[in-house]
C-alpha cells in the first residue's frame, strides 16, 4: 500500500517535471537558415546602427530614422537592407513558431524578441522608447 503510494507520487513528480520543461525549440534547419541570413547582413547594417541612420524599433523591427545622413548613392542599398532585415526577422519569428508547432505564437515570439534586440544594442545605437528615439 505504502509502496504503491510512493510509486504514484514518483510518477506524479516525473510527469510534472516533464511538462515544466516546456522549452522553445530553436534548433531547426529553418530557424538556422534565417539566422545565417541575419548574421551575414549584420556586418553591412552595423555602420548604419552606429551612425544612427538606422534605429531599433520597439516592435522587433529596424527602421531608417535618418536617411539624410546617408550618402545619396548608398540610400537605395540601405533601404533594401532594412527591408530585407525586417522580412527576415518576421521569417525568424514565424520559423520559431512553426518549429514549436504553434504558428499562432508568431506575434508572442516577436514581442519576446523586441525588447531583447534593444537590450543587446551597443552603446551609441539609437533605439525607440516610449518617449521617442534615445541613444544607448
Amino acid at each position: 500500500m505504502n509502496l504503491r503510494k510512493y510509486l504514484v507520487l514518483f510518477a506524479l513528480v516525473v510527469s510534472f517535471n516533464a511538462c515544466a520543461m516546456a522549452d522553445i525549440e530553436v534548433n531547426t534547419p529553418g530557424v538556422k537558415a534565417v539566422e545565417a541570413r541575419i548574421q551575414a547582413r549584420h556586418a553591412q547594417l552595423l555602420p548604419y546602427y552606429s551612425s544612427g541612420a538606422v534605429g531599433l524599433n520597439m516592435d522587433g523591427t529596424i527602421v531608417l530614422r535618418d536617411i539624410a545622413s546617408v550618402p545619396l548613392a548608398a540610400r537605395k542599398h540601405l533601404n533594401a537592407l532594412v527591408n530585407a532585415e525586417n522580412l527576415d526577422r518576421d521569417a525568424l519569428y514565424a520559423e520559431i513558431a512553426n518549429a514549436n508547432a504553434h504558428p499562432e505564437w508568431q506575434s508572442e515570439i516577436r514581442n519576446a524578441f523586441a525588447p531583447r534586440w534593444i537590450a543587446h544594442a551597443q552603446r551609441g545605437w539609437w533605439v525607440m522608447s516610449d518617449n521617442g528615439w534615445i541613444q544607448k
Partner: peptide
C-alpha cells in the same frame, strides 16, 4: 500557454549569435 521565459532566453541566445 506561450512559454514566455523560455522564449526570452531563446531570443537572447539567437541575438547573441547573429550579432
Amino acid at each position: 500557454f506561450f512559454p514566455e521565459a523560455s522564449a526570452t532566453r531563446a531570443a537572447d541566445k539567437i541575438i547573441d549569435e547573429v550579432w
